[in-house]
Design a protein around this nucleic acid. Sequence first.
DNA 1: TGGGGGTTCTGCAACGATGCAGACATCATG
DNA 2: CATGATGTCTGCATCGTTGCAGAACCCCCA
Lengths: 336, 336
Amino acid sequence: MAGPTLRDVAKRANVSIRTVSNVVNGYAPVSDELRTRVQAALDELDYRPNLIARNLKQGRTGMIALVVPELDVPYFAELAREVIKAARSHGYVVMVDQTDGDGDRERELLGRESRATMFDGLLLSPLAISAEELRSRANRIPVVLLGEHIFNGSFHHVAMDNVAAAREATAHLLDLGRRRVAAIGDQPYANGETAQLRTAGYRQAHARAGLEVDEELVVTTPHFHRRLGAEAMERLLALPEPPDAVFCYNDLLALGAIRALTRAGRRVPDDVAVVGVDDIEEGQYSTPSLTTIAPDKGEIARRAVDTLMGAINGSAAAPSEIVVPHRLIVRESTAG
Amino acid sequence: MAGPTLRDVAKRANVSIRTVSNVVNGYAPVSDELRTRVQAALDELDYRPNLIARNLKQGRTGMIALVVPELDVPYFAELAREVIKAARSHGYVVMVDQTDGDGDRERELLGRESRATMFDGLLLSPLAISAEELRSRANRIPVVLLGEHIFNGSFHHVAMDNVAAAREATAHLLDLGRRRVAAIGDQPYANGETAQLRTAGYRQAHARAGLEVDEELVVTTPHFHRRLGAEAMERLLALPEPPDAVFCYNDLLALGAIRALTRAGRRVPDDVAVVGVDDIEEGQYSTPSLTTIAPDKGEIARRAVDTLMGAINGSAAAPSEIVVPHRLIVRESTAG
DNA sequence: TGGGGGTTCTGCAACGATGCAGACATCATG
DNA sequence: CATGATGTCTGCATCGTTGCAGAACCCCCA
């Protein structure tokens, strides 16, 4: 099972281990004659460098870890794709792990026996554990946070402007003349920062338009899945005065809401207009297609990876707060 | 940056390195007195074992790699989730990489300088490179193939029965009384084995029903994305005699096809019934919801990981050909 | 002929951990 | 008291690689 080592190659080519290493790495000057002899031995034995050993010696692995709550949530899958791409351009590979939003799993990740020491850096997506806790367990390896707002930043952090995004989405609905705009996805409790920022934006839009928010229309959901979007929509439809528009805190909620609406016989957008957030590909092909706030995922991934690379290569810069652009993409679910 | 090592802890606790190691691993008998002293030192220095070093010594990393063409294709994302789960139950973590179906990327993965030596095993999903080539570059580490049919198996292989699955999907449409059933997704060329198996099943269903296949209705698509499903459907609709049903080789194609149909003003399933393959979650929430062939992804992942673990732990069993169950799930796109 | 400078090549130590054999002390037993 | 068994603890070698310093050799020119 175990392959040939430098030693085996050296023996066969009748040279020192070090010389073989030099040939493999193209390092020091090696005469053509020896080089071809060594190369022949390498080929004959089909030598492959043992990266573990190389890593141990060099103190880096060329791997970073990307930790997301759920890999099969399209936003994270699409983000993962971009991260893998960005990392590759730095010669890095990415270990993807999912925590199911489970705080224990996350703690484990940062704990003593964690495999985190195998990675040169960590990209963490929205966390169940608090900023406090993260800081106290702070690992020895560089960390960049994605999309979760951690206050008084002790970590590098990349995200879009959630307040502005939510404000624009809501304003778009108000501009269409809708007056009962619901919000699905609030999380008014610890670690629900992202959702809270979006709620803040939703309120700002109302305030700027001189409108009151009907608190009945702000629905809390513990997470952002299709099913919860559908359920929340059903509850809203059961109100005496149901909404004529909904701002959903992500696209999955929005698609679930649309599903509930069509099942209930309401037309989208005629009866109820719907906006989501994330711009997952699915929203381009749904019926109706989905108006959404599109964060620049490629940019998020690139900036996050760049920042992480900077931290890995020792630039002990102060934690950076990076805001990536977003834009409203109007599709059928509001434009009819 | 570099954390404390066993040596540092040993120095602080005034014991040998070996004893610290024993405490860390709970190995040999260590007296309570020393144990507490060492433990204190471990805590004070916040020691974390260097896994690279441990791995080098032990010859295994506790990591496997999962290689898929595209991580943001829902089927692969959902599969990845299951694989990560299954691997975790064996104490393994999973590196996910994507190749974009790019043969060069795959060759690189298997090539000399590949990072594959960092992993105890490899799970490979449908490949752009041929079975031949894979075999010739066969790595030194155990490999299990997922969902791609490699003939005269030299590798472990886990998949559903593609012919049967396609036959059942097509039969379902024929049973509904549809007589012009199209197929979207054929790939009648090298490395299109999976697609070819599905086409075979499609033909079998026709043959068993005593019907001819209209070759005009069999559409080739180079890959399985929503856009191509929509385009293929548009072409089919432009035929003098358009189909009254479509069997799509995966759910994304089907969702794209549905999109094209509704845009063209056709009703699904009344005018055209649609079936997909994969049972991605999106199909439960689309409008209409999607009838599909559901492979048991959890089972695929578990069997694949189990098989890989077996191979890693040295059981040099003959390559196993594992067939996992699938079933037809009827939803609105055919049941109206 | 001898010494400076360059080119090739090599051995040793080290990365941080664990396997192994053995040192040392303690204790029970005949 | 000698013997051996047992329980703790330690040092050395090792995993496969690379950094470093220097050895060996060649060439050139004074």
